[in-house]
Write a protein that binds this DNA or RNA. Structure first.
Lengths: 244, 244
DNA sequence: TCAATGCAAGTGTGATCACAAATCAAATAA
DNA sequence: TTATTTGATTTGTGATCACACTTGCATTGA
């Protein structure tokens, strides 16, 4: 396998995309990330290395390294007993997360507003259509698809901000708020108010006009919704639990 | 070892501090962190698991997990060859890092400005004294102590912001800018302009007055210095290299 | 009946081994 | 001399094992 035979002078090699050797650990990590952001794990649920290894059909080795990585991103929590769980939801933590997301994602979208080219704007505009489409056959209540599409929309924008530092931080924030969001989305569906498309449309409009301040404002409104909704719900629940 | 016999009713237990079982992996991780923030590793230097394991006198297992964690925080970089190195310094990355630090650390200090109690302010005020003290016998050029003291000063403030979400992000940012900073500090010393104490004094003043905007501004001035200094240096070097 | 004790299963951590891929150096061919 | 190849060494990855600690449950004692 010589390096010289695979360089740019070879007309064959130019058409071949690098295959990219993904390790088992990477796959486990991605899978756990996906599950976390999608809210497949319950808050306060404890995870065991061997349990996950069995579920993912691998040995314990890739799992323990993936868990360690998720713990450092605060997506999981290491208890003093040395067991690991998905962090529980508290009101303080929710406010903390929302504040950080407003700060950082707001900055990212403001940067992106001045840097997105027309092709990128067309891409996110196209996503609005997908959203309406899914909404049409809404009875299916496909929460997974909803979460995935929402994530794709936001990160298509964030990627355009051009900051290799901010984007991983935003990913970490989504990882941390994943469990909360899922709860909120279910509550949303029950309450019947799923107007995400409206908020996204406002964002696209601002981006097309290169209106950084407007985009930031629209984004804040969008990401705040599940948090304030869930906050109200939790407060109502605790009040009800208190009186009961 | 019963839980019941170790609770608050036992007069003996009240005097005993929990022993806290730190794992080898944690020690390796902390040690590598310290080295990274202190800039003990050169930018672009590649690290090997077995090499570090030998240096740290442990097996490869704790090292590889610590490296994985540092890679997810972007403190280290995983090359496609699967070797890991400390990220190289580029102008784009420096600007990116500085912008993120201004955004997040600025927010943290603004929050802290309204929450620090007089005892905490006295603590950071006391640190100014230590700084002057060190400066007096400056001929020793104790860069390590300088870095440590600077870190202690800043994080004493950040901890007071009360955000469990922002603080780990700031730690990650320090980890990422560690290699840059060290280079800058050496350059500073050569240039003979070490007026960090002045900037810190301004910060303390603003914190004592609960002046959030002033504190943010003073902080930005403080953390920007090494970056602009290093930027000028790098630009001068590349220009010189170009003409040579 | 209830709490304390002791045993067994489960779990995380670290060490070691096997294997594949990458790297480096010497040797060979042009 | 220079470029290529071949082989040895190094390195990351995953699997397995041993050990210590925790947890849960059944047994025993008052």
């Amino acid at each position: 396998m010589q390096k010289a035979t695979a360089d740019k002078s070879d007309p064959i090699a130019a058409q071949l995309a690098p295959v990219g050797r993904e390790t088992v650990q990477d796959r486990v990590y991605s899978e756990l990330r996906r599950a976390l952001i999608g809210g497949l794990f319950e808050p306060s649920q404890v995870l065991t290395i061997r349990g996950l290894a069995d579920a993912l059909m691998t040995s314990t080795m890739p799992v323990r390294e993936a868990l360690g990585r998720l713990i450092t991103e605060k997506a999981l929590e290491a208890l003093p007993n040395r067991s690991v769980r998905v962090p529980p939801i508290t009101l303080e933590r929710m406010d903390d997360l929302l504040r950080a997301r407003i700060l950082i994602e707001g900055e990212a979208i403001a940067l992106a507003a001045t840097r997105m080219n027309s092709r990128q704007i067309a891409t996110i505009e196209g996503m609005l259509g997908e959203w309406d489409e899914m909404r049409a056959l809404k009875h299916k209540k496909d929460v997974d698809r909803e979460v995935t599409l929402n994530q794709a929309f936001h990160f298509e924008i964030y990627r355009a901000c051009g900051s290799a530092v901010l984007i991983p931080m935003i990913e970490s924030l989504w990882l941390q708020s994943g469990p909360c969001i899922r709860v909120a989305i279910y509550a949303f569906s029950d309450a019947g108010e799923v107007d995400t498309a409206h908020y996204h449309r406002t964002i696209v409009k601002a981006m097309a006009a290169q209106d950084a301040a407007g985009a930031r404002e629209a984004l804040i409104a969008d990401i705040s919704r599940p948090f304030v909704f869930l906050r109200n719900k939790l407060e109502a629940d605790s009040k009800k639990g208190l009186s009961a």
